[in-house]
């Protein structure tokens, strides 16, 4: 009885599926899905090698400082870094006085101690990086109706994040003629910028790094657009996961111990089962 019921239920689901399959296949044949412009012209990120990659990766503090300099002089005009506090910058190799000086350059929201009215004051190491815009409406108004995303977690919030940031910053270009020939309606709208590494190809952000030497690096490294893009990508790997180094350094002794314990456990297992055929 249960088996007859089960066969009927099985046939019910199978027929419903075949019905869906038939209808899907029919429409697939009558109107084959056309390739979209994103499918045809979106590119995967370019390869980027960083010191923090790999099983033994550590941060290149010089590079992080350069990347911070790019953020500080270029990105921060529009992008927040709200999960990072100035005190965290000590991990980049700055000493207490340098961190204080960096914090003091930023204006953070405060309260007038005499009147209680909202005002701004210079940042302290315990403050977090401030928002560049008062609110989302102000952010949209200043940026062609797009809100510049917070960058704290950017390299973890995109597939292959660091390479994505690097590719995006170096990927602004003219729309290829082949694209306009194949998809005449896909011309980049006014105010947007073509970038094949961006999901829908057209980005509200204007190219932020446009000229070599735009940032004068304190360590004397030549600041090409490519170099600045690499450095800021490396910096954003740190902001997204400041504990990355500690994580990898902790991992090795943990794995070493587990390997040792597992081998001992295996030897104990062999010893106990020595005379027991199984």
């Amino acid at each position: 009885m249960i088996r007859i019921l089960s066969i009927l239920v099985g046939l019910f689901f199978s027929l419903a599926l075949l019905w869906s399959l038939g209808k899907g296949a029919a429409s697939f044949i009558s109107e084959p899905p056309a390739a979209t412009v994103e499918q045809a012209f979106h590119k995967p990120p370019r390869e980027l090698r960083l010191a923090s990659d790999g099983l033994f990766g550590t941060f290149d503090k010089q590079q992080l400082q350069r990347g911070f300099q790019v953020y500080d002089e270029v990105c921060k005009a529009c992008h927040s870094l709200r999960l990072v506090a100035f005190r965290d910058l000590k991990a980049l190799g700055y000493n207490d006085d340098e961190v204080k000086a960096i914090a003091a350059k930023y204006q953070v929201p405060g309260v007038d101690p005499n009147t209680g009215e909202a005002n701004t004051r210079p940042g302290r190491p315990t403050d977090f990086f401030p928002q560049p815009f008062a609110n989302d409406i102000a952010a949209r108004a200043a940026n062609n109706n797009a809100i510049p995303p917070d960058l704290s977690l950017m390299t973890k919030a995109r597939h292959d994040g660091a390479a994505y940031v690097y590719s995006l910053l170096t990927g602004f270009q003219e729309q290829p003629a082949a694209l306009l020939k194949q998809f005449p309606d896909a011309r980049t709208p006014a105010g947007l910028h073509y970038n094949p590494y961006f999901a829908n190809l057209n980005l509200a952000m204007a190219p932020p790094l446009t000229a070599d030497g735009q940032v004068t690096y304190k360590d004397g490294t030549r600041s090409t657009v490519d170099q600045m893009s690499r450095d800021v990508a490396a910096f954003l790997v740190w902001t997204a996961e400041p504990k990355l180094e500690k994580r990898k350094q902790t991992g090795w002794p943990v794995l070493g111990f587990l390997l040792f314990a597992t081998i001992l456990g295996n030897l104990a297992y062999r010893n106990i089962w020595r005379d027991m055929k199984h």
Binding site: R247, K248, G251, L259, T262, G265, A268, Y269
Partner: peptide, 17 residues
């Protein structure tokens, strides 16, 4: 016991790396 060790090894390899 020893298979648990082997399991934890793989689990920690993913966790840390």
């Amino acid at each position: 016991g020893w298979t648990l060790g082997a399991f934890l090894f793989i689990y920690c390899a993913v966790l840390f790396f």
